[in-house]
Each structure stands twice: as C-alpha cells, then as structure tokens.
Amino acid sequence: MTDPRAPKVLVIILNYRTPQMTLRAAEAALRDMPARKAELVIIDNASGDGSPGVLTREIAERGWDKGGRVRLILSDVNGGFGAGCNIGFAAGMSDGSRPDYFYLLNSDAFPDPGCLGKLIDHLESHPKAGFAGSHVRGEDGLDHTTAFRFPSIAGEFEGAARIGPITRVLRRHVIAPDLPTETARVDWCAGASVLVRAEMLDQIGSFDETFFLYFEETDLCLRAARAGWECWYLPSAHVVHIGSASTGMKAWDRVPAYWYASRRHYFVKNHGRIYAAAALLAKLAGGALHSLRCALTGRPPQDPPGFYRDLLRFGLGLPLERSAPVSRRTVSEENP
C-alpha cells in the first residue's frame, strides 16, 4: 500500500538532438524512481532532428506512457537549460497536481541505484534544504566537480591565476574547492543531477531565462540562499555523467558568446555593474599572471584559445571576432 505521506517527485530530462542518450538516461532514472507518486517528463528543446518521433515511438513501445509514468513535451524554441526546466516545472504531475520535488537530470547522466532515494530522504529530513546535489563521476570513474562556492571578485582572480601561494591566501574564495567527502552544505550544485524543492520555487521563482546556458543554477541557488534556503551536496548519492554530449563543449575551438553573456548577466544582476567590472578586471589580471607563468615555465596555457581577448572584448561591448557559429539556436540546453 502506498504511503500517503510519500512525496510526489517529477523527474525532468531535457533532450537536444540526443534521443538515444536521453532514453538511456530515462531508463536509468525509471529504475531508480519510487514505484508510486513519481513521474518523468522529457522536454525536447526544439531539436529539429527527428528526436520527437524517436522519443514518442520508444516511449510507447517500452510501455513507459502507461498511467502518465513518462510524458514527452515539445518546446517550440530552444530557450536553453533554464527555459527547458521551467517547462517541466510548469507541467507538474500528469493529474495536474504539484509535485513536492523536481529532480533535474541531464540527458547524459545515469543514476546509480538508490541515488534519488537518498536525495529525497535528505530533503525530507531537512525542511530548509532547497537543493540536494549528488556526486557525479565520469565513465572513467573520475570525479566531476559539481559543488561550488558563489563567484566573487577574489574567486575570479584565484581561479584565473592558478598559482599555489595565491590559492592558499584566497582558499576561502576558491570557487571550485575539493569535493566534500561527507554530506555538507555548499553554495551551489551543478544541474546535472540535483533535487529541487517545489515549495522553494513557489517562493523565489524558477530559472531566469535570460541565461541561455551556464550560471543559471548559480543564480537560482544564490536567490534561494538570500531567501534562507540551503543547498546540500551528498557524496553518497551517485550518478555517471558523460558530459557535453549535446553541447559539444569538448570540441569547442572558442568559448561561445552565450557563456560570456551569462557570466556578465550573473554579476550585474546579483552584484551591480561596478562589482561586475571589478570581477572582470580580477579575472583578466589573474589570467595575465597565468599566461606569464606559462611563458616563463614553458607550460601550455590551460585556457581555451582567445579566451581572455574575447572576455575583454565582450566586457567592452565589442563583437567577438570568430568564424565559429554561436547562435542560441545551435547549442543545447545541457549543463556540462
């Protein structure tokens, strides 16, 4: 008999031109979802490649659509990760009711058995927890950094400089510190595998759709923190993540314009233009130190080609000179 006190959970997976990968993620999620009061919705972010037909056929052939267990929603436009998730937030359960939790899972992420249950148990036992993020590893078994501090001026400088003595002095500002080995509060978690409390979204609102890709979950967690909600990282809940399957990030020759736009919007929106300008200067200064060190030691730079030139040009409002397309409609919704 179903426990009437059991929470309702809606799993949200966004698809962009990776239907078979999305089906694999959905299959892993279904195996880990509670048998009752849990559903999964796939949002196709205007793939334009036949994905809806593939997904519709496979969902029906596998019998996933029975009782509203799995639904497919088609978006007319690819508004990015946040916009796609917002469609799932608005959809709710198949009977029209509001879920207690939303589980955001990337289309190239596959939960281990028990992952979702551990995230649910944590939010159930911590009423002020708005987020619970899982441990994420690659197919090679290596950890993916998915628990972070909020970006700051000092953090931008340290992250760009990557010099031991500077990191030690600014250790409390490191944006991507070592992953906690035990359950711990963090500033924000990446959206590849994170459980979100619906009550919190009702209070603070959903994703800011100005962000096409990157910084949207950082912004949401910051808004939540300012409203008194907590974000937790659970190293005992595990997910395998391929990473960048639909963004193509690993094959980028240059960082796309939407990354710079998201970064600037985050700082201006949350801290003001003066702070945003100082954060830009800090990152440029740290990058200059890194480049100097590489030149003196013969080490290869760790930044993408043209990164700081593009960062400066974008900060000055100048167009980015490149041949690679950066259209919002050519990239996906996924968080790498």
Rank of each mutant, 00 (worst) to 15 (best):
L23K: 11
M1A: 03
L142R: 15
I204Y: 15
V9H: 01
D140A: 13
P305H: 00
A60G: 08
P180K: 04
A26T: 04
A227G: 04
R223A: 06
A154L: 12
G298H: 10
R223V: 08
G248I: 07
L289F: 08
I120F: 01
P304T: 03
R24W: 03
R299L: 11
D3W: 09
L316R: 10
F307C: 05
A35S: 13
A227H: 12
G130F: 07
S246N: 13
C231A: 12
R328C: 03
A227I: 14
E27V: 02
A38K: 01
G53A: 09
Y233D: 05
D219I: 00
V240Y: 02
A288H: 11
S47L: 04
W232N: 03
T183P: 02
P52K: 02
R309K: 09
A91E: 11
L289N: 12
N78F: 12
G133K: 00
F267V: 06
D112L: 05
L23C: 07
W259P: 04
R98N: 11
T297F: 05
V268L: 14
G286N: 15
A184M: 10
A25Y: 00
L104G: 02
D140R: 09
H290I: 10
I59N: 01
D178W: 10
D253P: 12
D253L: 14
H135P: 08
A28Q: 05
R309E: 15
S244C: 15
G306W: 03
K269Q: 07
V136Q: 01
K269P: 00
V70F: 05
F307P: 08
D143N: 09
V255P: 05
A288R: 07
S246L: 02
V70W: 06
V194C: 13
F307D: 12
W232M: 12
L201I: 10
R149V: 15
G88H: 12
M249G: 09
P7A: 10
E124F: 10
E182T: 11
A38N: 01
A279L: 11
C189A: 06
L123D: 00
F131H: 07
E321Q: 14
I204E: 15
I87F: 11
H135C: 12
T181F: 10
A285I: 00
A276G: 10
R98K: 10
L179S: 11
I87V: 14
A257G: 01
S323H: 03
E217H: 04
A6W: 00
H144F: 14
G114A: 00
H238R: 14
G63Q: 07
L220H: 06
K66P: 00
P177V: 10
